[in-house]
């Protein structure tokens, strides 16, 4: 009994540590600047004001960043779900020469750390003449090695009899893939969708090296710009916290709705290593 109480005490303490920063964020984005500076810990704004949100919507380029983020996230997610599953299926099931080499290359590419690619990616975008465009922002992200790997594993787990039965019924490879096998890997497709959504919505480094024009900024890029100095005078923390809050909300909603798929991601990470 005492052990149980201690367990709860620990859990509640840590839940506070992990969640209270968000409470502070929400509360302070509704405070005046003076109130936020004087009482940052207080969860109750006094006085309550939505002034910072008015300023975010009318005094910054937030709406533009939001539109760019939505465009990029939708296209990247669609691209990854489509292309990753095509490639994953081919690598798991279709026999063609060079398949093992392609698989090995993709596996090797998964190990390439993102931050060392900052300069290399800029070089290629620059060389192709697409630096500073929507193409630069979106095209390089349309396929990702991790997604291909997730789909490959999912397709490999589908019983082969299903496909053979479809072939016997006269369905071609493409038909079999599209209307028989693809529906069977729905959980993996949902995982991939969520992973792509979260990855492209939160992406900062790619947009940092792909575009320079403020008209092409996505939310994290615009937010980073706000924080590192484009705001001018004063700290304006309620505004910064509000803009950050609005950036977090979509991912938070997806997280609450699709939690079990997020949990899957982390565990698949463990399995694939």
């Amino acid at each position: 009994m005492r052990r149980k109480a201690a367990g709860y005490a620990v859990l509640v303490l840590f839940a506070l540590i992990f969640l209270y920063p968000f409470v502070i964020q929400i509360a302070n984005s509704f405070k005046t600047e003076a109130d936020a500076a004087a009482h940052p810990l207080s969860p109750i704004p006094h006085p309550f004001t939505a002034a910072s949100f008015k300023k975010i919507l009318h005094g910054t380029d937030f709406p533009l960043w939001l539109a760019n983020s939505v465009l990029m996230t939708v296209l990247v997610t669609l691209g990854r779900v489509f292309f990753d599953s095509l490639a994953g299926y081919a690598l798991a099931r279709l026999r063609f020469r060079g398949r093992d080499t392609v698989s090995a290359t993709i596996l090797a590419m998964m190990a390439v750390p993102g931050v060392v690619l900052l300069i290399p990616k800029f070089l290629v975008l620059n060389q192709l003449g697409i630096y500073n465009s929507y193409t630069a922002l979106i095209l390089p992200l349309l396929v990702d090695a991790t997604g291909i790997f997730i789909m490959k594993q999912a397709f490999a787990a589908v019983p082969i009899d299903v496909e053979e039965a479809a072939h016997v019924d006269g369905a071609g490879i493409v038909r079999t893939y599209w209307s028989v096998v693809l529906p069977m890997v729905r959980p993996a497709l949902i995982t991939l969708t969520i992973l792509s959504f979260q990855g492209s919505w939160n992406d900062f480094t790619h947009s940092l090296i792909a575009v320079q024009n403020p008209d092409l900024y996505t939310l994290p890029r615009g937010l980073a710009d706000l924080v590192t100095g484009s705001l001018g005078s004063g700290t304006q923390y309620p505004l910064k916290l509000g803009a950050s809050l609005l950036t977090i909300i979509p991912v938070a909603v997806i997280f609450l709705v699709f939690q079990r798929y997020f949990v899957r991601d982390a565990n698949e990470g463990a399995a694939k290593g």
Partner: peptide, 28 residues
């Protein structure tokens, strides 16, 4: 509930969270 509470910070944008921590760690 607790599992989600502990996991939630890791799914959010690194930039957005950095803004929050910048505020938490100001001198006052």
């Amino acid at each position: 509930f607790f599992r989600s509470a502990f996991y939630f910070p890791s799914v959010t944008s690194s930039v957005a969270i950095s803004v929050v921590f910048l505020f938490l760690f100001t001198s006052t």
